[in-house]
Computed example of a mutant assay.
Amino acid sequence: MPRIDLDAYVAANARSWVRLEELVKQRRRTGAEADELVDRYQQVATHLSVVRTSAPDGELVAHLSSLLGRARISMLAARVPSWRGVARFFTEQFPAALYRLRWWWLGCLAGNVLVTGIMMIWLAQHPAVEQNLLSPEQVDQLVNNDFESYYSENAAGAFAAHVWLNNAWVSALCIALGILGLPVLWLLFQNVANLAIVGSIMVRHDRGDLFWGLILPHGLLELTCVFVAGGIGLRLFWSWIEPGALSRAAALARAGRTAVTVALGLAVVLAISGVIEAFVTPSPLPTWARIAIGVLAEVVFLAYVFVVGRAAASRGETGDVSATLLEDRAATQA
């Protein structure tokens, strides 16, 4: 881009900078003034980009950067969550993030299901391992009492909250520790190992119908959420191993922001799973009805990802935060 006459450029645009300064200093704004603040912010961000590219003046760049920084803080402070924003999150950002990253969590899901199946078959064929893990009395207590009573020994509401907190914590750990890679694999292995051990014991003692009847209603959606978190965590790890065209810092930042989107959405999905576990799993409904509810919940989630998420992604939604919340960048033309 050719150099510009800086004095002329300042004279032409100084009024916009002064107006943005005035809007930033206002404690209260009307709706029109709030809209003007956003418009002026974007306008001055473009001015800053032009100055940086065509007539880099340190003092002016510092002034405009400071002004934009204060404007951004002002916009964030005035940003009040609305039903429209919540609706956009669940119809655009969250499903788009799930869809765009589908191969990561679908691979995680398939791998964990395969490992669980192999472990259950192997453990069922090697009863000596069971004897090393639990005493005969503990096995008897698990098979005849503990496994079933776990779902009904506490009040449903309190149990739902406990389950939600536990699963949300595991999912959050999978995402938060994703940057390190290996801890995510360890968390996932612990999760499926416990499932495989209990499942093999129940099946070997002819209580497989009880095991599957109590696990499947809530477990399909619950474990899918955990595997989604694991896949997103591994994607976060891979973002700094193989950043592509971005710098490692930029790639990690973008993956991290999308991971936060997924974590927030999963908290809601896990709450639904917790309600199913507390109110449906121990209910007197026939086994086929309870499992059908679990299958329906899983189908609805997958449809949400591959119908709503695919549509949102096709409209350009990425699951990242709004561009207005990122650092001041504006495209300019020569």
Score class of each variant (00 low, 15 high):
P2G: 02
D5P: 03
Y9H: 08
V10W: 06
V10K: 02
N13M: 06
R15E: 04
S16H: 13
W17R: 07
W17H: 02
W17Y: 06
R19W: 10
E21L: 09
E22V: 12
L23Q: 09
R28Q: 12
G31L: 13
G31C: 13
A32G: 02
E33W: 00
A34R: 14
D35G: 02
E36D: 01
D39R: 14
Q43A: 11
V44P: 02
T46L: 08
S49D: 10
R52L: 00
S54R: 15
D57T: 01
A62C: 02
H63Q: 15
L64P: 04
S65W: 03
S65R: 08
S66G: 14
R70L: 05
P81N: 13
W83D: 00
G85S: 01
G85N: 08
G85H: 03
V86E: 07
F89Q: 07
E92F: 15
F94A: 02
F94H: 11
P95E: 09
A96M: 04
L98W: 06
Y99M: 07
L101D: 14
G107W: 13
G107Q: 08
C108K: 11
A110D: 04
V115G: 09
V129H: 04
E130M: 13
L134E: 03
E137L: 00
V139E: 08
V139W: 02
D146A: 12
E148S: 08
Y151T: 01
Y151A: 11
A155T: 14
A156K: 06
G157T: 13
A158F: 08
A158G: 15
A161Q: 11
H162T: 13
V163P: 06
N166K: 04
N166D: 14
A168S: 13
S171V: 05
S171N: 10
A176V: 06
L180R: 15
L180A: 14
L180N: 04
G181K: 09
L182Y: 13
V184T: 08
V184H: 05
L185R: 01
W186D: 15
L187T: 00
L187Y: 03
N191D: 10
N191V: 00
N194M: 12
G199A: 03
V203T: 07
D206E: 09
G208A: 09
F211C: 01
I215H: 05
L216K: 01
L216P: 09
P217C: 00
E222D: 04
V226A: 05
F227M: 07
G231H: 09
R235V: 02
F237W: 12
W240I: 02
G244I: 02
G244W: 13
L246E: 05
A249V: 12
L252P: 01
G256P: 00
T258Y: 14
A259E: 09
V260E: 09
T261L: 00
L266S: 00
L266V: 02
V268R: 03
L270I: 04
L270G: 09
S273A: 08
G274A: 10
E277G: 07
A278P: 06
A278H: 03
V280M: 14
T281L: 03
P282S: 00
I291W: 06
I293V: 06
V295Y: 08
V299A: 00
G309L: 01
R310E: 14
A311H: 15
A312K: 05
A312V: 01
A312C: 03
T318Y: 05
D320E: 00
V321A: 01
L325Y: 05
L326M: 10
L326G: 04
E327I: 08
E327A: 08
R329K: 11
Q333L: 15
